[in-house]
Structure formats: C-alpha cells, structure tokens
Amino acid sequence: MPTVTIPAALRPQVDGLSEITVAGASVGELLLKLKDQYPAFGAKLYKADGALNRFVNVYVNNEDIRFMDDLDTQVTDRDEVAIIPAIAGG
C-alpha cells in the first residue's frame, strides 16, 4: 500500500503518526480514507466544498499533484505521497 507522509503540523490530528500506509489507487482515495479515519485531520486538509486547502500541497514522489492529475493522480505501492503545508515561521 502507498505511504502518506504527514507533516508535523497535522500529526496531532492523526495520533502523532508521521507516516500512514493506506490502501487506494489515487491520491484522492488515499486522502478520503484518511479523512474518514481521522475527521479532525480531514477538517484541516479540506475546504467545506471538498477541495483541498490551498496552503497545503500534496506531492507524489516530490512532484506536485496539481501538475499531474490532481486528486485523480494514480499511485502504486511504491509511491510516496507527502502532504506539505506552507512553512510560515522564521
């Protein structure tokens, strides 16, 4: 199953996990499963209309899904999906 990397900012919403292995054929499927499993995580990731929040980017093997097929981007067991939010501190 593909692995989803959870950023530090969102780990409190997923029981502190930094990586979660989840079954699914597309990025959208993976994230919806995580949303169902961790509703508080979903609330941070998605806008009310079901789209992803725009201060969060999702990468598959370091490529932004917006430049591929967005949430329909297909993933295999060997792919690494990373959620990376904008980093504001400094």
Binding site: A8, A9, K44, N53, R54, F55, N57, P85, A86, I87, A88, G89
Partner: peptide, 20 residues
C-alpha cells in the same frame, strides 16, 4: 504560484506550540 493562500492563524503550529 506555489502557495496560493497563506495558512490561516491557528492552522499551523507556531513557535510556542511547536518550538524551534
């Protein structure tokens, strides 16, 4: 282009919640 919007307050950890 990369981040269309800023994270709103309270969404991301700050220096006091996450440390640095």
């Amino acid at each position: 282009c990369i981040y269309e919007q800023a994270p709103p307050p309270g969404v991301n950890p700050t220096c006091d919640t996450a440390g640095v």
